[in-house]
Protein backbone atom coordinates (compact mmCIF):
# COMPACT_ATOMS: atom_id res chain seq x y z
CA UNK A 1 0.00 0.00 0.00
CA UNK A 2 2.91 2.30 0.73
CA UNK A 3 4.03 1.91 -2.86
CA UNK A 4 0.53 2.63 -4.15
CA UNK A 5 0.52 5.87 -2.19
CA UNK A 6 3.93 6.88 -3.49
CA UNK A 7 2.78 6.06 -7.02
CA UNK A 8 -0.25 8.27 -6.55
CA UNK A 9 1.96 11.12 -5.39
CA UNK A 10 4.35 10.65 -8.30
CA UNK A 11 1.55 10.67 -10.84
CA UNK A 12 0.30 13.99 -9.52
CA UNK A 13 3.82 15.41 -9.47
CA UNK A 14 4.32 14.42 -13.09
CA UNK A 15 1.87 17.19 -13.74
CA UNK A 16 -1.10 15.30 -15.00
CA UNK A 17 -3.72 17.88 -14.25
CA UNK A 18 -5.37 18.26 -17.59
CA UNK A 19 -8.82 16.68 -17.57
CA UNK A 20 -7.98 13.74 -19.86
CA UNK A 21 -4.68 13.09 -18.13
CA UNK A 22 -6.60 12.82 -14.86
CA UNK A 23 -8.43 9.79 -16.17
CA UNK A 24 -5.09 8.26 -17.08
CA UNK A 25 -3.80 8.99 -13.59
CA UNK A 26 -6.90 7.42 -12.09
CA UNK A 27 -6.38 4.26 -14.08
CA UNK A 28 -2.72 4.11 -13.09
CA UNK A 29 -3.53 4.52 -9.43
CA UNK A 30 -6.14 1.79 -9.65
CA UNK A 31 -3.49 -0.43 -11.20
CA UNK A 32 -0.86 0.41 -8.61
CA UNK A 33 -3.27 -0.23 -5.76
CA UNK A 34 -4.28 -3.57 -7.21
CA UNK A 35 -0.72 -4.62 -7.79
CA UNK A 36 0.12 -3.92 -4.20
CA UNK A 37 -2.87 -5.66 -2.78
CA UNK A 38 -1.90 -8.66 -4.93
CA UNK A 39 1.57 -8.69 -3.34
CA UNK A 40 0.19 -8.65 0.17
CA UNK A 41 -2.38 -11.29 -0.58
CA UNK A 42 0.39 -13.40 -2.07
CA UNK A 43 2.61 -13.05 0.99
CA UNK A 44 -0.33 -13.75 3.25
CA UNK A 45 -1.67 -16.65 1.21
CA UNK A 46 1.66 -18.46 0.81
CA UNK A 47 2.12 -18.48 4.57
CA UNK A 48 -1.37 -19.34 5.72
CA UNK A 49 -4.03 -19.97 3.15
CA UNK A 50 -5.51 -23.28 2.25
CA UNK A 51 -7.03 -22.16 -1.06
CA UNK A 52 -4.72 -21.60 -4.00
CA UNK A 53 -2.62 -18.44 -4.02
CA UNK A 54 -3.72 -17.42 -7.49
CA UNK A 55 -7.38 -17.74 -6.66
CA UNK A 56 -6.97 -15.66 -3.52
CA UNK A 57 -5.14 -12.86 -5.33
CA UNK A 58 -7.55 -12.65 -8.23
CA UNK A 59 -10.77 -13.07 -6.33
CA UNK A 60 -9.75 -12.23 -2.79
CA UNK A 61 -11.44 -13.72 0.16
CA UNK A 62 -13.46 -11.76 2.62
CA UNK A 63 -13.39 -14.70 5.01
CA UNK A 64 -9.62 -14.89 4.84
CA UNK A 65 -9.09 -11.40 6.24
CA UNK A 66 -7.12 -12.15 9.37
CA UNK A 67 -7.68 -10.84 12.86
CA UNK A 68 -4.30 -9.07 12.84
CA UNK A 69 -5.13 -7.16 9.68
CA UNK A 70 -8.42 -5.87 10.98
CA UNK A 71 -7.12 -2.93 13.04
CA UNK A 72 -5.00 -1.59 10.18
CA UNK A 73 -7.90 -1.93 7.72
CA UNK A 74 -10.21 -0.02 10.04
CA UNK A 75 -7.58 2.64 10.73
CA UNK A 76 -6.80 3.16 7.04
CA UNK A 77 -10.50 3.43 6.20
CA UNK A 78 -11.02 5.97 8.96
CA UNK A 79 -8.06 8.06 7.83
CA UNK A 80 -9.30 8.00 4.23
CA UNK A 81 -12.77 9.16 5.26
CA UNK A 82 -11.26 11.87 7.45
CA UNK A 83 -9.07 13.19 4.63
CA UNK A 84 -12.10 13.17 2.33
CA UNK A 85 -14.14 15.15 4.87
CA UNK A 86 -11.36 17.68 5.41
CA UNK A 87 -10.76 18.27 1.69
CA UNK A 88 -14.43 17.99 0.72
CA UNK A 89 -15.17 21.55 -0.42
CA UNK A 90 -11.76 22.10 -1.98
CA UNK A 91 -12.15 18.88 -3.97
CA UNK A 92 -15.56 19.96 -5.22
CA UNK A 93 -14.29 23.38 -6.23
CA UNK A 94 -11.26 21.85 -7.97
CA UNK A 95 -13.41 19.46 -9.95
CA UNK A 96 -15.72 22.30 -10.96
CA UNK A 97 -12.78 24.25 -12.35
CA UNK A 98 -9.10 23.99 -11.38
CA UNK A 99 -8.55 27.59 -12.51
CA UNK A 100 -11.32 28.85 -10.32
CA UNK A 101 -10.06 26.85 -7.37
CA UNK A 102 -6.50 28.16 -7.83
CA UNK A 103 -7.79 31.72 -8.00
CA UNK A 104 -9.60 31.17 -4.72
CA UNK A 105 -6.35 30.10 -3.10
CA UNK A 106 -7.02 26.35 -3.08
CA UNK A 107 -3.74 24.38 -3.25
CA UNK A 108 -5.05 22.45 -6.27
CA UNK A 109 -2.02 20.22 -6.64
CA UNK A 110 -1.83 19.23 -2.97
CA UNK A 111 -5.55 18.49 -2.96
CA UNK A 112 -5.08 16.35 -6.07
CA UNK A 113 -2.33 14.36 -4.39
CA UNK A 114 -4.43 13.86 -1.27
CA UNK A 115 -7.30 12.61 -3.41
CA UNK A 116 -5.18 10.15 -5.40
CA UNK A 117 -3.62 8.85 -2.18
CA UNK A 118 -6.95 8.10 -0.52
CA UNK A 119 -8.15 6.51 -3.73
CA UNK A 120 -5.07 4.26 -3.77
CA UNK A 121 -5.85 3.27 -0.19
CA UNK A 122 -9.49 2.55 -1.04
CA UNK A 123 -8.54 0.38 -4.02
CA UNK A 124 -6.02 -1.58 -1.98
CA UNK A 125 -8.59 -2.22 0.74
CA UNK A 126 -11.18 -3.31 -1.79
CA UNK A 127 -8.66 -5.66 -3.40
CA UNK A 128 -7.85 -7.22 -0.01
CA UNK A 129 -11.46 -8.18 0.47
CA UNK A 130 -12.87 -9.10 -2.91
CA UNK A 131 -9.74 -9.53 -4.98
CA UNK A 132 -7.86 -7.69 -7.65
CA UNK A 133 -10.17 -8.40 -10.57
CA UNK A 134 -13.37 -7.37 -8.86
CA UNK A 135 -12.04 -4.50 -6.74
CA UNK A 136 -12.62 -2.06 -9.58
CA UNK A 137 -16.28 -3.02 -9.63
CA UNK A 138 -16.63 -2.27 -5.93
CA UNK A 139 -14.80 1.06 -6.29
CA UNK A 140 -16.62 2.24 -9.41
CA UNK A 141 -20.02 0.54 -9.20
CA UNK A 142 -21.61 2.07 -6.09
CA UNK A 143 -20.70 5.70 -7.04
CA UNK A 144 -22.03 5.14 -10.57
CA UNK A 145 -25.26 3.86 -9.04
CA UNK A 146 -25.45 6.80 -6.64
CA UNK A 147 -25.10 9.27 -9.55
CA UNK A 148 -28.32 7.87 -10.97
CA UNK A 149 -30.17 8.31 -7.69
CA UNK A 150 -29.15 11.70 -6.35
CA UNK A 151 -27.86 15.02 -7.61
CA UNK A 152 -26.43 16.26 -4.33
CA UNK A 153 -22.66 15.94 -3.93
CA UNK A 154 -22.83 14.96 -0.25
CA UNK A 155 -25.82 12.72 -0.88
CA UNK A 156 -23.97 10.89 -3.65
CA UNK A 157 -21.12 10.11 -1.25
CA UNK A 158 -23.42 8.73 1.42
CA UNK A 159 -25.56 6.73 -1.01
CA UNK A 160 -22.47 5.25 -2.68
CA UNK A 161 -21.08 4.21 0.71
CA UNK A 162 -24.37 2.62 1.73
CA UNK A 163 -24.69 0.72 -1.55
CA UNK A 164 -21.17 -0.62 -1.12
CA UNK A 165 -21.83 -1.80 2.43
CA UNK A 166 -25.20 -3.35 1.55
CA UNK A 167 -23.69 -5.16 -1.45
CA UNK A 168 -20.86 -6.61 0.63
CA UNK A 169 -23.04 -7.67 3.56
CA UNK A 170 -25.76 -9.13 1.38
CA UNK A 171 -23.03 -10.86 -0.61
CA UNK A 172 -21.73 -12.50 2.58
CA UNK A 173 -25.20 -13.70 3.52
CA UNK A 174 -25.82 -15.15 0.07
CA UNK A 175 -22.41 -16.81 0.01
CA UNK A 176 -23.12 -18.38 3.37
CA UNK A 177 -26.48 -19.61 2.11
CA UNK A 178 -25.02 -20.84 -1.19
CA UNK A 179 -23.42 -23.73 0.68
CA UNK A 180 -26.76 -25.47 0.28
CA UNK A 181 -27.12 -24.53 -3.41
CA UNK A 182 -26.86 -26.95 -6.40
CA UNK A 183 -23.29 -28.20 -6.40
CA UNK A 184 -23.99 -29.09 -2.80
CA UNK A 185 -21.23 -28.86 -0.28
CA UNK A 186 -19.36 -25.99 -1.96
CA UNK A 187 -20.05 -22.37 -1.06
CA UNK A 188 -19.97 -19.93 -3.98
CA UNK A 189 -17.31 -17.18 -3.71
CA UNK A 190 -18.35 -14.01 -1.88
CA UNK A 191 -16.74 -11.82 -4.51
CA UNK A 192 -19.14 -13.12 -7.13
CA UNK A 193 -22.17 -12.17 -5.07
CA UNK A 194 -20.80 -8.73 -4.19
CA UNK A 195 -20.13 -7.81 -7.79
CA UNK A 196 -23.39 -9.31 -9.02
CA UNK A 197 -25.28 -7.23 -6.45
CA UNK A 198 -23.38 -4.05 -7.36
CA UNK A 199 -24.30 -4.58 -11.00
CA UNK A 200 -27.91 -5.36 -10.13
CA UNK A 201 -28.20 -2.18 -8.04
CA UNK A 202 -26.77 -0.21 -10.96
CA UNK A 203 -29.43 -1.56 -13.34
CA UNK A 204 -32.25 -1.01 -10.86
CA UNK A 205 -31.08 2.56 -10.20
CA UNK A 206 -31.14 3.23 -13.93
CA UNK A 207 -34.73 2.04 -14.16
CA UNK A 208 -35.74 4.06 -11.08
CA UNK A 209 -34.10 7.20 -12.47
CA UNK A 210 -35.93 6.76 -15.77
CA UNK A 211 -39.31 6.33 -14.08
CA UNK A 212 -38.76 9.37 -11.83
CA UNK A 213 -37.72 11.44 -14.82
CA UNK A 214 -40.75 10.39 -16.87
CA UNK A 215 -43.08 11.17 -13.99
CA UNK A 216 -41.48 14.57 -13.45
CA UNK A 217 -41.80 15.40 -17.14
CA UNK A 218 -45.48 14.51 -17.08
CA UNK A 219 -45.85 16.56 -13.92
CA UNK A 220 -44.19 19.61 -15.44
CA UNK A 221 -46.26 19.29 -18.61
CA UNK A 222 -49.42 19.30 -16.51
CA UNK A 223 -48.37 22.44 -14.64
CA UNK A 224 -45.80 24.13 -16.84
CA UNK A 225 -45.84 27.55 -15.19
CA UNK A 226 -45.59 26.24 -11.67
CA UNK A 227 -42.00 25.11 -11.92
CA UNK A 228 -40.93 28.24 -13.76
CA UNK A 229 -42.33 30.51 -11.06
CA UNK A 230 -39.46 29.46 -8.87
CA UNK A 231 -41.40 27.71 -6.12
CA UNK A 232 -39.41 25.01 -4.38
CA UNK A 233 -40.10 21.52 -5.63
CA UNK A 234 -40.45 18.64 -3.21
CA UNK A 235 -36.96 18.59 -1.82
CA UNK A 236 -36.75 14.88 -1.19
CA UNK A 237 -38.02 13.39 -4.41
CA UNK A 238 -34.63 12.74 -5.94
CA UNK A 239 -32.72 11.65 -2.89
Amino acid sequence: MGIAIVAAGLIELLGLHRPRARDVATGLVLGAGLGLAALFLYLDATSSSTTGVTVTILFGSLFAVSQQMLPSIVALSAVSLLVLAVCYRMLLLSSLSPDLAAARGVPVRAIGIAYLVIMAVAVSLAAETIGAILATALVVGPPATALRLTKRPGGALVVAGLIGVVAVWLGIVLAYDSYYWPPAGHGWPVSFFVVALVFLFYLVAGAVARIVQARRRRHSEAAPRLAASGCAEHPGDAA
Binding site: A85, V86, L92, A101, G105, V106, L147
Partner: peptide
Protein backbone atom coordinates in the same frame (compact mmCIF):
# COMPACT_ATOMS: atom_id res chain seq x y z
CA UNK B 1 -18.94 19.30 -16.70
CA UNK B 2 -20.37 15.84 -17.09
CA UNK B 3 -24.19 16.10 -17.10
CA UNK B 4 -24.19 13.25 -14.55
CA UNK B 5 -21.98 15.08 -12.08
CA UNK B 6 -23.90 15.39 -8.81
CA UNK B 7 -23.46 19.12 -8.41
CA UNK B 8 -26.54 21.33 -8.41
CA UNK B 9 -26.55 24.99 -9.30
CA UNK B 10 -27.04 25.80 -5.63
CA UNK B 11 -23.99 23.73 -4.70
CA UNK B 12 -21.87 25.71 -7.15
CA UNK B 13 -23.08 29.00 -5.71
CA UNK B 14 -22.49 27.74 -2.16
CA UNK B 15 -18.90 26.86 -3.12
CA UNK B 16 -18.46 30.55 -3.93
CA UNK B 17 -19.14 31.23 -0.27
CA UNK B 18 -16.71 28.74 1.27
CA UNK B 19 -15.23 26.47 -1.41
CA UNK B 20 -11.68 27.33 -0.32
CA UNK B 21 -12.24 26.16 3.25
CA UNK B 22 -11.30 22.87 4.86
CA UNK B 23 -13.87 20.56 6.38
CA UNK B 24 -17.51 19.93 5.60
CA UNK B 25 -19.98 22.82 5.46
Amino acid sequence: LDPDMPLRARDVVALGLDGHRLGVP
